[in-house]
Simulated assay, not measured.
Amino acid sequence: MQLIQSIVILSLGILLAGCEKSSEPTAESHAASAPFAAASTLTVNQALEASLPVELQQKLQDMILNPKTSSEDVLRAKQYLAARDDVQNDVRQFIQAHAQVITAQQDANPEQKIKFLKQLYVQQLDDELMGVDLIKLYGTSEMRKLIEQRDLIADQYAGEMCDWVRPILIPGSGDHDFSANSIQYTVLSDGRIRVEAVNFGEKIRIDFELDCQDERCKINDIFAPQSYKKELIEIVKHERC
């Protein structure tokens, strides 16, 4: 915010400096130029507003409409109003660009996410790893905690099959007749990665929300099509099988 404010103040200073004349101002122009002194102290919030504060805007309009105002000050008032709009547009564009940079930094490289999911499914399709909860293994700390709490609830109903105990990465029975190489990966507009495959003639479509930092990815949520995290939260909340 301090950086943006500095840009606004600097831009206003440059733009207003361009409106100054080298001639010595008269007493009349001193009085008429008072709004410009106030304008030099604009904050970033004021610069981002759709219009100037009503009092200052009215003074500028009065200057333009007043027949006693010198043509020089009328021009300066009009130039300031135009400069104000330019500065606001520049600030908005700066903020938008800055937000895009932040989003890009937070959102890991799509190739990194896809690479992680490819490795995940290679392990999921490995018979030697059958029974390993890969979501718990590669989940965020929040996901792991929810799954652990869910497992404790399931243990309370020994011998019973809870209706929410089911495969997530490969819906259905968990069996498969497809290979890891046949899986398709698509980057979605919200940053999620869609995994698609055909298993025993049935189409599988799962969206993954991943948290990737320092070249390591964790599973934050899975949508198949509903949020798996929300499902876990409900199970833990009600503590029922």
Rank of each mutant, 00 (worst) to 15 (best):
S11A: 14
S11F: 04
S11Q: 07
S11H: 04
S11E: 03
S11C: 02
S11Y: 04
L12Q: 00
L12C: 04
L12K: 05
L12R: 02
L12W: 02
L12V: 05
L12D: 06
I14N: 04
I14A: 09
L15W: 03
L15H: 07
L15E: 07
L15C: 04
L15I: 02
L15K: 14
L15A: 11
L16I: 13
L16E: 14
L16G: 08
L16C: 14
L16Q: 11
A17P: 01
A17C: 08
A17H: 06
A17I: 06
A17K: 10
A17F: 09
A17Y: 08
A17G: 14
G18I: 04
G18T: 01
G18M: 07
C19L: 15
C19D: 12
C19H: 11
C19F: 11
E20G: 07
E20Y: 08
E20D: 10
E20H: 10
E20I: 15
E20L: 13
K21N: 15
K21P: 00
K21T: 12
K21R: 10
K21G: 06
S22V: 11
S22F: 09
S22T: 15
S22L: 09
S22E: 14
S23C: 10
S23V: 08
E24Y: 06
E24T: 14
E24C: 06
E24N: 07
P25V: 03
P25Y: 01
P25W: 00
P25M: 00
P25C: 01
T26S: 13
T26A: 03
T26L: 01
T26E: 05
T26R: 00
T26V: 01
A27I: 10
A27H: 07
E28M: 05
E28Y: 02
E28A: 11
S29K: 01
S29M: 13
S29C: 06
S29F: 00
S29L: 01
S29A: 11
H30M: 05
H30K: 15
H30F: 14
H30W: 14
H30E: 12
A31K: 07
A31L: 15
A31W: 09
A32Y: 08
A32H: 04
S33N: 08
S33H: 05
S33T: 03
S33I: 03
S33K: 02
S33P: 01
A34N: 04
A34W: 13
A34Q: 08
A34D: 13
A34R: 06
A34S: 04
A34H: 02
P35F: 03
P35A: 05
P35D: 09
P35N: 00
P35G: 06
P35Y: 03
P35R: 05
F36K: 00
F36Y: 05
F36I: 05
F36R: 02
F36P: 02
F36G: 00
A37V: 12
A37P: 01
A37W: 04
A37N: 02
A38E: 10
A39M: 12
A39R: 00
A39V: 07
A39G: 01
A39Y: 10
A39C: 10
A39E: 05
A39F: 13
A39L: 15
S40R: 14
S40F: 04
S40W: 00
S40Y: 06
S40A: 15
